[in-house]
Design a binder for these strands. Structure first.
Lengths: 223, 223
DNA sequence: TAGATTGTTAATCGATTAACAATC
DNA sequence: TAGATTGTTAATCGATTAACAATC
């Protein structure tokens, strides 16, 4: 309801998806879209789309719908894709290197400025155009460059300690790929946990219970 | 409520996290835990934990609480960690290789039996102990080995076509890392989309709006 | 038996959907 | 003006929390 703040987490989590679909539509040359059309495309209700967007302001026009390019730009601004949050990545193992090279940080309001690893052998090598530094340089680097976001691709055991150090060095947000639930320990710090293992387990559950709903329906049919 | 099926998605998504915390407790040698203790550990309410667990049955004991080892095992069984769903991975790029080597499929009810890529240069090389096959072998391999789960680490443009092929070959579930929303096109097929880009954008939003709630609070304080 | 803590029902809260007046 | 579609309020639905009787 408020133009700033107080937007519920469920709405915010849907914003990147809106942004993605509107980007696609833009690429395809679609100029305008109604909430009804967008809803059918995204498998949502038109009500929800209008409700969601109106958390941030009235971007549409009665009788017309929404201008795709305009709405895309507005949501981009709300998310902050025009910003360049200084970002560092800790842990240049398999996953860390993949994240560094696979993710386009720039189009998502971030700028990857350094990568760190504790392994002497990895330090010095280049990943995604950035030379990997040894973890010993972390503190000096942060005091000098004041990064705001840290991507954690480190083992569970180290996460708590590294996060504490980084908070003391001014880091404001963690994109956490470690097996450790970071959200628990810090308020006032933004944490986005990506628990890939949990995601796979959810899938496993789904496969193993795939027939449950069908079986139940069959039972009901008989009654 | 029902012992099988009809458990809401919100409950199911919390199961892997319960499983993870109970595993930790087990490792630390904790024998029993009350819903109140577990709630404070996981930053949930005791009510929610009891409500969630009772979707699957009464695992606790009045006046005592829950036996950690027992509950861990029960949830594991519900998730299906004791299964070995045959799993293939398509796309041995940065991300695909990282997923293959970083994720422990076995402890999550899956078994990675093959990796495929369209790049002739990658085919033949070993990743995570599995030789990468050329995508041309996919159809024959599936008809022979009947994998159930496919991990998609391929570009957006190919996802739809590859998914359709795999469905026709009997794949029942997709762990989808591509930039494409797969859920939209298939019902009856389990899809777990991992949109890393969306996750980063949510973080970006969080950082850029970090002060919003505080500002609002300050305003309210003044009134 | 008394104390603790569950399983479960009832109350509350928030999110989604429906409806409709406002307006382009 | 008539038709379309928004912004917004009201109704519904589902999920979370609170309460408490059952029971170990």
């Amino acid at each position: 309801m408020a133009k700033n703040g107080e937007v519920s987490a469920s709405v915010i989590k849907r914003l990147p998806r809106y942004y993605r679909f509107l980007g696609e539509l833009m690429k395809q040359g679609t100029e305008r879209i109604s909430s009804r059309e967008l809803a059918s495309l995204m498998k949502l209700t038109a009500s929800q789309i209008r409700q969601d967007l109106n958390c941030f302001g009235g971007f549409g026009q009665q009788g017309y719908g929404y201008n795709v390019k305009d709405l895309h730009e507005q949501i981009g601004k709300i998310l902050g894709v025009d910003k360049k949050l200084s970002t560092i990545l800790i842990g240049a193992g398999n996953l860390g290197r993949a994240i560094a090279s696979h993710i386009n940080f720039e189009t998502r309001g971030c700028q990857l400025i350094a990568i760190f690893d504790s392994n002497e052998k990895i330090a010095g090598k280049a990943v995604a155009g950035t030379t990997v530094r040894h973890i010993d340089e972390l503190e000096f680097f942060c005091r000098t460059n004041k990064p705001e976001v840290a991507v954690l691709c480190i083992p569970k055991a180290n996460t708590q300690a590294v996060a504490e150090l980084l908070v003391s060095l001014g880091i404001k947000a963690f994109w956490n790929f470690s097996h450790y639930d970071l959200s628990i320990d810090y308020e006032d710090i933004v944490v986005e946990n990506v628990h890939l293992g949990d995601s796979l387990l959810t899938l496993t559950y789904g496969v193993n219970h795939l027939l449950d709903s069908k079986e139940n329906n069959d039972e009901n049919d008989k009654k």
